[in-house]
Amino acid sequence: MTGKDVPGLEEARDTIPPGTRINVTFLGNEDPRQRLAAARAVRRSGFVPVPHISARRLRSQAELAEFLGALRAVGATEEVFVVGGDPAVPHGPYDDSSAVLRSGLLQEYGVRHVGVSGYPEGHPAIADGVLWSAIEEKSQLLREQGLRGSVITQFGFDAEPVLTWVEALRERGVDLPVRVGVPGPAGVRRLLTYATRFGVGTSAGIAKKYGFSLTNLMGTAGPDRFLHTLAERYDPVRHGDLGVHFYTFGGLGATSDWVAARRPLYRTEPS
């Protein structure tokens, strides 16, 4: 959720299992007050807030410490998600999420679990070799600092490259739990907009496999087929600890209603 989604959270909370982790984004057009209000609302509603920390948006070490201190004051530092962020040029001393991990400030303010990003379909601005080195480094840093961690992947429309990527991740010795990014039900036009922004494949074949048409942008689509394929082809030996993370592109209410209606079909735990 974003800082502006508090009303949507309050409307959807009865359909979300208690203890569910809900990520709170770190958008450039929102201020710390909005982020804190969202984290506080998540906690108040009986869920676990997972605030994002955008490394390249931080202007100083003091700003990071101030943000973590404010999160701790509302009980929202046990779990965080650290990402490099969108700016091409860092606003301050943190070039990437590894720099935030190396700062030592996370543990100082009570962080116990850190989520990091994974990119099964690559990143439009970062070479694959750099991405692999980065996730290996972050896994090592978390282990050295005694922090629990997990990987949340970019969303996608094709389960095959996700499973292939997870298998490659395990072969590289990274054993962090992986939560596969899954778009909640949303309008096709909106889904394609986000896909273009994040470099996600949207060929006609992929769209058809997922369940929407590139010629009907007024329609909506949900991840039923994607999840079915993921569950069907999941191998605990090759893929390890695997779960899902829903991106609420169509809104918190639409996603939570969709999940609630289908929960009996899948083995789920609050996460």
Rank of each mutant, 00 (worst) to 15 (best):
G3P: 08
V6Q: 13
R13L: 09
D14V: 13
P17Y: 15
R21L: 14
V24G: 10
F26W: 15
P32H: 03
A39F: 09
H52V: 03
H52T: 01
S54A: 15
E63A: 13
E63G: 02
L64V: 11
L64P: 13
L68K: 05
G69E: 15
L71G: 05
A73S: 12
V74G: 01
V74E: 04
E78D: 14
V83L: 15
P87Q: 10
A88S: 14
Y94A: 00
D96K: 04
D96E: 08
D96H: 08
A99R: 06
L101K: 02
G104S: 02
L105D: 10
V114K: 10
G115H: 10
S117K: 05
P120Q: 05
G122Y: 08
V130W: 07
L131P: 11
S133C: 07
E136M: 14
S139M: 00
R143I: 00
G146T: 06
D158Y: 07
D158Q: 07
A159Y: 04
E160T: 11
E160I: 04
W165E: 05
E171Y: 05
D175F: 11
L176H: 11
P177C: 05
G181Q: 03
P183H: 04
G187W: 04
G187C: 02
V188F: 12
R189N: 00
T193K: 09
T193S: 06
K208H: 15
K209M: 14
G211F: 08
G211A: 11
F212K: 05
S213K: 01
L214V: 03
L217N: 01
M218V: 03
M218K: 06
G219E: 07
T229S: 13
A231N: 13
R233D: 09
V237G: 01
R238E: 10
F249K: 00
T255R: 05
V259T: 08
A261P: 01
R263K: 13
Y266E: 07
P270S: 09
P270I: 14
S271R: 15
